[in-house]
Every structure is written in C-alpha cells, then in structure tokens.
C-alpha cells in the first residue's frame, strides 16, 4: 500500500502571507484576506464606521441617552421601571420616521450559547413589540440577539449577570 500526501507549495503560500489592510482610505467592511500555510486562507472581517447622532439622543440629561432595559432571570417582560424609557424611544421614532433602531437582546453566560441566543431574541422582541404598539413602524426597527456573547460585566456573580440580562436600543450609526 502506498499513499501520497500532496505537498502544498508552501513558498507560494508564504509569499502571499502579509497582505495588510490599506490605511487612510475608508474601510467599509470589505474582508481582508491573507494566506497562511497548508491551504487555510485567513479572512479578517471588516468593521463599520460611526456617524453623528442628534444631541437629544446623547445628552446625559435626556432620558433618550439611556439605552438599556434590564430583565429578571428567565424573564422576558419589560419591568414597570423601564416602561417610560421604552415609551420615550418609541415617541422619538414616531416623531422622526427617518431614524432606524437595532435592538440587541442579551443574556447571562449560563447555559448553551445558541439557546441563550434564542433567549436574548425573546428580550429584544419584547421591546420591539412594545414599540410597535406605541406606533413605531415595522421598517424602523429590527430586533436581534447577541445571546451571551457581549456581556457588559464579566464576573460570575448574580449582580454581574443581572447587568447582562438586557436589551440595548441602538440607533443607526451606533452599532
């Protein structure tokens, strides 16, 4: 029995190793690729640039500067203390139809990543539903989940987990 493992043309691959992104020019999310050995090509995912938002959305004195709704463990209903915040953002979106919002749902780290992604979606959906009832248009709003992937607090304690069970309301340009 004789088998051949075809050798990869390593020199050729290494020659293409050092492609780095151009600086200066705007990077609009085009992937950056580079080669490493043995036939696996490295892809770098691009990033999205930011834009300016009106002061009313960012002024710390404005309720609209607050973006997070926090949830209890295994719960997906908006607690009374967050109803005003959701209503204020809904009113802003109704008054400013050109604005679009992305709601990102989050969970704490316990359990399966994919199941947590689904739980985070339920939180984002709860906020979205409340806003639709308050007159926001379906095409202004998207609810998605980041599951347990983007915790705002990383200790393993209930006080930390409670900060991670949240929905973040972000305007186009903020995400």
């Amino acid at each position: 029995m004789k088998k051949l493992i075809v050798p990869v043309l390593l020199a050729v691959l290494l020659g293409a190793c050092s492609s780095s992104p151009d600086t200066g020019a705007e990077q609009t999310g085009a992937p950056v690729e580079s080669r490493s050995s043995d036939g696996v090509k490295t892809v770098t995912a691009g990033d999205v640039g930011g834009t300016k938002l009106p002061a009313i959305l960012t002024d710390p004195k404005s309720i609209l500067s607050k973006r997070s709704v926090y949830f209890d463990y295994d719960r997906f209903d908006i607690k009374p203390e967050f109803k005003d915040l959701v209503a204020a953002h809904a009113k802003f979106l109704v008054d400013n139809r050109q604005f679009k919002m992305l709601i990102q749902g989050h969970t704490d780290e316990r359990g399966s990543r994919e199941y947590n992604l689904a739980l985070g979606q339920k939180r984002a959906d709860a906020i979205k539903k409340a806003m639709l009832l308050l007159g926001v248009r379906e095409d202004q709003i998207e609810s998605v989940s980041l599951g347990e992937e983007k915790p705002s607090c990383i200790e393993q304690s209930e006080s930390c987990w409670s900060k991670n069970r949240r929905g973040d309301m972000l305007y186009a340009g903020e995400f």
Binding site: G39, V40, A45, L102, E142, E149
Partner: peptide, 20 residues
C-alpha cells in the same frame, strides 16, 4: 455564525480559498 455585522449572520466558508 459571525456577529461582524452587529447581529448573528450565517456564513459558509471554504477553507482552502477563504471564500465566504
């Protein structure tokens, strides 16, 4: 699943070419 667009998106990635 990659979150590079600030939300979960499913890709299929060919390892030899890097084509996604």
């Amino acid at each position: 699943v990659s979150f590079e667009n600030k939300k979960p998106v499913i890709y299929v990635h060919s390892l030899a070419s890097g084509k996604r």
